[in-house]
Every structure is written in structure tokens, then in C-alpha cells.
Simulated scan of single mutants.
Amino acid sequence: MARLCGYANGGGGLVRSEADFLRRAASRLSIIDPPESQNAVAEWVNQNGGRTPLGGLWRGDTLMKTLSNPRMAGLDREGNPIEGFGETVLTPDEQRALLEARTAIRGEPSQRRESFDYLLTKGIADCDVCAYDLAGSRVHAEADPGYRCLPPTELRPSCGTIRMDAGRLETAVAEEVLADMLRPGRHEELLRLQRDAQEEAERLSLHIEGAEARFAALKGVRNQMLPDAFKAAEKATKDDLAAARARLRFLEQIVSVPLADPHDVVAWWNSAPRASQRGLILVSVTKVHVLGSGGGRGHDPHKRIRIDWRTAA
């Protein structure tokens, strides 16, 4: 039986080259506005050199079956974390989002527009009116990609009033970020921020590597603890490990940006991978606030954004 793609063996051990294309495929398959077919994503994987563990080409159903395997997220068949499994290709939340997305689009027409990788979602941009994070969205199937403040719900008191075309918003933010790099002293500050991120990433890597020992130590005192206390300690240890891995992925995006020469970064931006562009924004910015279009701001996208810049401690 072939091993599970992404892992060296059944008990874990990440194969990073495989994990990389599987994570990117999962990201594409999780986009529901507009969705992308499984076969289209599999073809993209094949064109970019991704192969099955046996060296074959991917099919859409095989790729989705692999990503749906609970072990992709370090879970057993009942959905419980496998003790000592190690680093996973996907987090449980990422796999859950993927499965929910594919369920949501099942049965829709097979002809789909090309997916759009939004640059400023996942907490980077928010609504200046209500402070809720913006989501990537299209007004209708044929519309251009855009950002919007989602309508309010019982659990989300967002305002639902802010919208902005993705091309206008992302271009304006990129121009502001690249211009900021050229300000006197700013480049050196960004380099310090990147070094801090590198040091934190190294500490987190060591912390993650020590997880097996922490689980073993906890298991060693299990008989000396009340059952509820042991469960609480075990959950806290697992939550800590999951948070560390998520934080490490965030830091790795920042560390990967080539900041040696700010003028080189300006030239690099246009051909940089989307994740690397996001990394540059993350090292420069803490939040992009998107304002309403009133007061004549709609004609100049720069007047519709307010940026909180990241500063070195």
C-alpha cells in the first residue's frame, strides 16, 4: 500500500516538498467565490511538478480523497488528534474549511471562472466603520473580485456597508507598502522586524520539536492526576502546539521576503508569488482599514485606506 502523500510514514514525518503543493492545492480548493473544479486543481498540481507517492499524475478525485484523509490533519477516523503525530500537512481548521467549501459548491455548474487568491484577507484588512475583517467576495458570478464587510448576523455585529474592488484596493496597498520601504530609516527597521521574526521562528521550531517530550512527560504523570485534570492539561498542550505551528507559518511568510535591497524588492514584487507578497505586507503592516467611498474618496483608492504600520520594538 502506498504511503499517504505528504508524510514519510504512517506515523507522521513530513515530506516538505509534497506538503507544500498539497497545502497550496487545499487553499485553491477551499475558495468558493468563484470555486475551482477538483480536476482543474489537480491539473495545476501536475503542471507544477506535483506527483503522487508512486510518481503518477494526480486526478481530481484522488487529490480530494488524499486531502480529506483525517491524517492530513493528524486526526484518527473519529476526528481525534493522534498523540505524538508530529507536524501535519493541514491543520484541523484548514481541513474542515476545505470539506465545508467542497460541500457548499457540490452540484454547481462545472464551468467556473478562474479562482482569485485574495491578498488582504485573513485579518489583514478590515472595515473602518465596524472593525470587522473584510472577506473576499464577488457581487455576482460575472463580477470582478472584491472585498466586502459581511452582513451582520446574530453572532457577528458587522455593518455590511464597505465594499471595494480587489484590484483597486490591492494595488493601492502594494504602492503604499513599497513606497514606505523607501522612506529614510524604514528599510533598516524592516530588517530588524524580519530578524526578530527569524529568531521567534527558530524558538518556535525548537518548541514544536520538543512537543513529543512534553507529551511523554505528561503521560508519565497521568496516574498521579485526576482524570479531568489530565484531560485539561493534555488539551492545553495540544492547543499550545497547534498555536505554535500556526504562528510559525505566519512568521515563515515574513522571513521569506528578500529585503536585502529595498529597490530590488520593488522590482521583485510584480513577479513574486502571492504568499511572498503577503509576507511583505505582513512584515510592514499590522492592519489595513478600508474607508467608505463617500466624500469624493471613491476616485482615488489611496484615500480609501488607512494603514497601521508595524514598528520595531
Rank of each mutant, 00 (worst) to 15 (best):
D228C: 03
L241G: 03
V139A: 15
R24D: 07
W58D: 01
T91C: 07
E212Q: 11
N80G: 02
A143P: 03
G56T: 06
L259N: 01
E36V: 15
G295I: 13
H263F: 15
D144C: 04
L119Q: 06
E189Q: 14
Q194L: 07
Q95V: 12
E108P: 01
P184D: 02
R102V: 09
P258D: 10
A2N: 05
E209Y: 08
K122E: 15
D239T: 05
V45I: 07
E114W: 03
S276A: 10
W58A: 11
P35Q: 03
L67H: 02
F116A: 09
R163S: 06
G210M: 02
R203Y: 02
C5R: 01
S27M: 10
W58L: 10
L75K: 02
A211P: 00
H302M: 14
R203T: 08
W44G: 00
N9W: 15
A8P: 01
Q38M: 11
E43T: 13
F215I: 09
A179Y: 08
H263M: 09
R112L: 12
W268T: 07
W44C: 04
G296I: 14
G84I: 13
P34T: 11
L54K: 05
A166W: 04
L75G: 07
F85Y: 10
C5M: 05
V265A: 10
G136P: 13
W309E: 02
A25T: 12
G13Y: 12
L190I: 12
A232Q: 09
A101C: 11
K303G: 06
G136E: 01
V41N: 04
T161C: 05
P184Y: 07
R71G: 03
M164F: 08
C130H: 06
S293D: 07
H140Q: 12
L190S: 04
K219D: 13
S27W: 10
E142L: 14
M181Y: 06
D76Q: 05
P35W: 09
W309L: 11
A272G: 06
R112V: 12
A312P: 00
N270E: 12
P35E: 05
F21S: 01
L14Q: 03
T66K: 10
Q38E: 02
F21P: 01
E87H: 03
R183E: 13
